[in-house]
């Protein structure tokens, strides 16, 4: 295949847009796994729930996904504390988290996936919206709205998470919990509450990321699993507990995937994230920005 500059430019722009979406997926993992040590490999399942709720909302109630997104973020924040309490009571309290926690979330992942298969079937579902099919031309580079909208929403969401974590008291206690739980108690904050808030944020971002996913591409229940690798790859590459690292790593992954897809072939792109993850884990477990 002859590679032109136009093709490269298009692939890179598409990659950055896609990377923005991956950041939305991974930011929840960065918060739950990186900061709270909760190995929520069921995060993509939360995403799939969001995607299918957006589908239902549009097709049965006629609610625009942009509104569904905001509602779901609220719902996520509202039910998050209960989910965290459940997880804490069942698994975290016992102290022996790694194996049991992993198996627990692995089970949840499958329950959600099979539950969705049984309710919606294995057909691909997509949202038919006129504004999604628009394309903006910027010189030789074309930017589809299908990619641009998720990118913008994702950046706003990551920005909000960043602002909350760094500029509010509770947010800062969440960052502190990630480093030293005892020290958080000493300054008079309740680590349990911080963790509960952080977990709720993670759930909310997962639901929103799901809505973004169904804006980008048709969705069926099992594609959630593809995002386990992507989310964890981005999280690890970005240095595990860093929001800015996550966004940067997500862009790198996005560009790597679109370049692979246009230079070698789209069927190879699932291997990119996992390959990147394996390489990072094997050679640089502290991430690209790690010391």
């Amino acid at each position: 295949m002859y590679v032109t500059w136009d093709l490269m430019a298009n692939a890179i722009v598409a990659g950055i847009l896609l990377g923005g979406f991956y950041a939305a997926v991974a930011v929840g993992v960065t918060i739950a796994f990186g900061m709270l040590d909760i190995v929520n490999i069921a995060h993509p399942a939360v995403m799939m729930i969001g995607a299918f709720l957006a589908y239902l909302a549009l097709n049965t109630f006629g609610i625009d996904p942009m509104i569904t997104m905001v509602i779901l973020a609220g719902v996520g924040l509202a039910i998050g504390p209960f989910l965290y309490r459940g997880y804490h009571a069942l698994i975290e309290k016992r102290g022996d988290e790694s194996l049991q926690g992993l198996a627990f979330f692995f089970g949840i992942l499958f329950i959600v996936e099979i539950g969705l298969v049984m309710t919606f079937g294995v057909d691909y579902r997509a949202l038919e919206l006129s504004y999604l099919s628009k394309t903006f031309e910027l010189g030789a580079v074309s930017i589809p709205a299908r990619m641009l909208i998720p990118f913008v929403v994702a950046m706003i969401m990551c920005g909000l998470c960043y602002a909350y974590l760094f500029y509010t008291f509770t947010g800062r206690t969440i960052l502190a919990v990630a480093q030293d739980v005892e020290a958080v108690r000493l300054i008079g904050a309740d680590p349990q509450r911080s963790k509960s808030v952080a977990f709720s944020i993670a759930i909310a971002t997962g639901l929103v990321a799901g809505v973004l996913l169904i804006l980008i591409q048709p969705v069926e229940p099992s594609i959630g699993r593809e995002f386990i690798g992507r989310a964890f790859a981005v999280c690890v590459l970005g240095g595990i507990a860093s929001i800015t690292g996550t966004v940067t790593a997500a862009m790198i992954l996005g560009v790597a995937e679109t370049l692979t897809a246009s230079l070698i072939g789209p069927s190879w792109s699932p291997a990119i994230s996992f390959g990147l993850l394996l390489l990072t884990l094997a050679f640089r477990p502290s991430g690209i920005f790690g010391r």
Binding site: F33, I41, F274
Partner: peptide, 17 residues
């Protein structure tokens, strides 16, 4: 180099690769 959770994620990655 990978203990606990990281090992598990790496094996998952291996299966997809």
């Amino acid at each position: 180099r990978l203990r606990g959770v990281f090992f598990s994620i790496a094996t998952l990655a291996l299966a997809v690769m």
